[in-house]
Nucleic acid binder design. Sequence first.
DNA 1: AATGAATGAGCCTTCATTCAT
DNA 2: CATGAATGAAGGCTCATTCAT
Lengths: 218, 218, 218, 218
Amino acid sequence: MSSVKRTTDRRGAILAAAGKVFRAHGYAATTMEAVAAEAGVAKGSLYNYFRSKQDLFSQLFAEIISADEADVEQLVTEAIPADEKLQKRIDNVFAQLERYTAIGGLVLEFWATAARQQHKGEMAEMFEQMFSRWRGRISEIVSQGVESGQFRAEIDPNVAASLIVAVVDGIIVQSILDVGVDFGPEYLAGLKKGLLAALTAWADTKPPEYNQQQVPGE
Amino acid sequence: MSSVKRTTDRRGAILAAAGKVFRAHGYAATTMEAVAAEAGVAKGSLYNYFRSKQDLFSQLFAEIISADEADVEQLVTEAIPADEKLQKRIDNVFAQLERYTAIGGLVLEFWATAARQQHKGEMAEMFEQMFSRWRGRISEIVSQGVESGQFRAEIDPNVAASLIVAVVDGIIVQSILDVGVDFGPEYLAGLKKGLLAALTAWADTKPPEYNQQQVPGE
Amino acid sequence: MSSVKRTTDRRGAILAAAGKVFRAHGYAATTMEAVAAEAGVAKGSLYNYFRSKQDLFSQLFAEIISADEADVEQLVTEAIPADEKLQKRIDNVFAQLERYTAIGGLVLEFWATAARQQHKGEMAEMFEQMFSRWRGRISEIVSQGVESGQFRAEIDPNVAASLIVAVVDGIIVQSILDVGVDFGPEYLAGLKKGLLAALTAWADTKPPEYNQQQVPGE
Amino acid sequence: MSSVKRTTDRRGAILAAAGKVFRAHGYAATTMEAVAAEAGVAKGSLYNYFRSKQDLFSQLFAEIISADEADVEQLVTEAIPADEKLQKRIDNVFAQLERYTAIGGLVLEFWATAARQQHKGEMAEMFEQMFSRWRGRISEIVSQGVESGQFRAEIDPNVAASLIVAVVDGIIVQSILDVGVDFGPEYLAGLKKGLLAALTAWADTKPPEYNQQQVPGE
DNA sequence: AATGAATGAGCCTTCATTCAT
DNA sequence: CATGAATGAAGGCTCATTCAT
């Protein structure tokens, strides 16, 4: 019933091939020929489905992002305490760290090379939306926790959400760059404990004393 | 009076120009011609100082990293409490967010495009060292805090350090991607408070229940 | 009627154009652009048929050599006396002096410029084979003459063949270098007479007294 | 008395270095930098002695040719029979085959690459003169032999000389191209015997029957 | 829709030559 | 005369894109 679909799902095949090749070689070093070869089609055929290399990349990116949507959407609506929701989200990220690393690789790829030029606007928007959605969901969860009294009242859910997203992104970056961190159970436990502690406890801080430095070519 | 020798310092000029152009256009989209023009030298002159485009990029990257060294090194040895050290480091990052964003951009650039190809090994090593150093320093600070009783004893300084680095990196990434976050005083305060709370308080956590999903082209 | 298939035969056209341009300007001074222009194709098209300039040159050379094969091969098997075979071969060379000059030019070109670098081995082999074949054929003819009693028995067919090839090559070289020799009928006659005389007569010789001299840069 | 000269014989040093490098790498693949390095001077200094790369090559070539002059000049005037003179000349060539190979290599180099472009005329002239002189000297020797009755009267000294030069050139070419010939004593003996036989005997020949063939790009 | 040969703009790199010191 | 950094023209090669079949 569903197997007849495959016969001519050229677009999907190309997209999959593109994902593979872009991740392996990077945007710039990926040739349309390589994508075609991986997809098992002729070079010219690519242009029947995508206007250009840029376009292929953009659509691939959009595809990946939208696939991530449903997954997270459901979390917010579940009927469990906020702290468990957070932990569950973290667990998800770690369980799919490999997957997020792959996506993240494409993100970097994208940012670094493709986002410039013409599509800049269109792409920046995609990024912003993706992050907003993320942040929004986390923010809701934190709000729920604050309202239920689980989390401290002084907490600004938006700031907290931004920071939580930042940790996760930072972890993904470290994973992508393969920087020698062992993301084992202790790491995961440490992260969760730290996070909840930060949301339930609160500490005093000092105001900063600024100083500056130069970067070449600034 | 000390050194009127460097009448022009071509190498520095080229490096500065390269930093500017690479950051503006990305590695792949940067032409040697553009760098030369920006530096105010002839195209051929670049090759009197750098063997290739790759080499130029690598040396630029190395330059930037090494410039960051001294800056952070001193922090560890200062005679102030661990929590203040951490806050100071955070303050520094925020104060120089623009600078770190620039560096980070180059890092992404680097990872995404330049690190592949031949120099992969050499470059991966540079990355790993950079992160290790970072982590190492933070880890020392956390250790100091644990020893002095400021921070909770259960904390694993290495895990904590990794996480702290992750937050900071995540923030830098968000800054680079310009994702709509306002890194104002509240954000800074929120971060510092959360951080210290996490280090001084401690919470209970739940074990994860895993689930998986696919990425196109895997 | 037999093959309307090769509507354009790009490869052949490029090869022909390359032969023309290489001969006219030499390997180093020949640009791919010039070859493309001469062939009436776009610069990039050359690389659909030949991997590189070197490759183009090599294939051109191979083509020319192989074209020369059949021509000479038949001579050995013809049912005429050895002396006539030799004369016929000489006649052929003279009749096609222009052609051989062209080939020779490419050979010099080749030796002087292209054979260095990477393909040295592959190319040296081509040379050696070409010469061996030549020599082998002449050697056979001389052998036939010696066996039939036409030529003197003391003659070593291999040495004789080498020398005959040398004269012919020398003539081609002079023709290539355009050194002011008139290759008219008298010259041809003189060569043939001298050759046959040398093979039928035999003279006394003296042992050499050696002396040496220097070349700059040795 | 003569050793003070060396102190500043920069020109000679450069010339020697050029000979070495040109022979090793070929004209096109030789950089002025390499010549300078080999000569132990700075790149710019070359231009104090030679107008250009071409000029350097030309002067090197002229130098080598003129060095060959004296050597052969004396032979003609010696008071020995013509056949011995010829044999002596042949012996000389063989004794110095290595040297002639070196020169020949430069000749090919020159012809193949440098002779084109502007200096074509000047260079062609040098070639022609070199060959003429060669031929002239041999021609004289043959004349002497014909006059003294040693050689046959029907022989045209000019044609004979051309042919003798051709053999020698052919041998040098084979030596340069390193084509698998063993230039041992038998080869030398065979050459000398054949040569003298050709000059003292005489044979009947047949008129040629022409046929043609094509070269790609003609 | 599929194909893949053809295209040509564009880029990195080399190197002979110049010239200020 | 010596030096070597600076120059810039020139060329080989790649590859996204087009288009005739």
